[in-house]
Design a protein around this nucleic acid. Structure first.
Lengths: 205, 205
DNA sequence: CATAACCTGATACTCAGTGTCAGTCGCGAC
DNA sequence: GTCGCGACTGACACTGAGTATCAGGTTATG
């Protein structure tokens, strides 16, 4: 899944990166993302500013690098699930894979998500990452699309909509302190697409 | 629609802003967004760097301020269209209003959109603006939502999906040089939601 | 051991964005 | 008219992100 480091150098580098991120994250939560500078982080972690910057290209990445594998997780899940399902079902399941991947330490993820949506810069960067994932997802969808879907617009819209669902659902989940069930939340979100869409008359549920 | 300036000062300020943006935009198209600095822009426009920065808080805004009214345009269109329509139809119509608002000078809009998706920073900022529009749209949807929709998740998902449609459609439209019909493109995009979603068997169209 | 690759800290640099300050202009009140 | 007030401007200084370079130390490998 996450490319296993081969050399000892890779291992070390990975470990240092994790430690730097850990220290930095505490600072962010304590003082606020914008208030903390790279100089602060470097001092807190006991390395030089140069070194810190070598591990994380931007301040946003210090927080958001944990989301990097999500795009591949979703794409892989789509591949594993091409059995007789329609796009929406496959996307829903793939999103559940992504959610499962992210939720290891519930408390930690909740804290991250809180920090993210308190911080416009983090929101923006995370949305940017999502957009980077989309082409890969679109490609997987189109592999099995009916020939009638000549234009890539349909697949793009569905992929984009699904990614929005993931984000909205995670926001809701984190607002509940990680109590609610992600599967149920995903179902609730995808219900926005499935019904015949006439909302005026209350649908008998 | 766009709040009419009342005082002479407002008029002047607005005109200066437009002129600065015009000069700057040429520079961006010529040299590339990232290559141009505020100092360059100020010199090209014949004002000081300070003054230029007083008119535009960020370099991104110099390009993207034209999109600012779109959120209100969509919200207003939703209000004017609450007659007996389901959410998706209302959203589709509202998006067409937004598109109509944006397409005054076809060539200019195409140029802007090209510049935007050549420039990650502009993409990110535009997506940020979209997210700012969403709450207002959600509120309008929920005003007429059936009581069965207790959770705001449904409305959020639909608003987010619709905004993604707008962006995808504009991308497609701009790729065609502004030739294709935006109404048709919107229909094609919204088709991603309507069919029973089973994509394996080619739907007889 | 030797060498090549890598990591680190130091330093210098560009540029976005913020804030301050003094001078200027337009405009209404007196 | 002129006085004062508010807004606009340019000049300057400053913080902080991100890039680039360099010398010296460390580690893997032959």
């Amino acid at each position: 899944m996450s490319a296993a480091p081969v050399g000892t150098r890779e291992i070390g580098r990975h470990a240092v990166r994790a430690e730097l991120a850990r220290v930095a994250f505490n600072r962010f939560c304590l003082t606020g993302f914008n208030q903390v500078t790279f100089a602060d982080l470097a001092e807190a972690a006991g390395v030089s500013r140069s070194t810190f910057l070598r591990y994380f290209g931007t301040k946003e990445d210090v927080v958001l690098f944990v989301f990097d594998p999500v795009g591949d997780v979703i794409a892989d899940a789509l591949d594993a699930d091409r059995v007789d399902e329609d796009d929406w079902s496959r996307l829903r399941n793939a999103l559940e894979s992504a959610a499962t991947f992210l939720v290891r330490d519930v408390q930690h993820l909740v804290t991250i998500l809180d920090l993210v949506d308190q911080t416009p810069a983090l929101c923006a960067r995370l949305r940017e990452k999502q957009t980077e994932w989309r082409p890969k997802i679109v490609a997987r969808l189109r592999e099995t699309a009916s020939p009638a879907d000549g234009s890539p617009v349909i697949a793009n819209v569905r992929a984009a909509a699904a990614l929005e669902c993931l984000w909205i659902v995670l926001g809701q989940w984190s607002a509940s302190g990680g109590q609610e069930d992600l599967g149920n939340l995903l179902d609730a979100a995808f219900a926005a697409f499935s019904p015949p869409a006439r909302q005026q008359t209350a649908a008998p549920l």
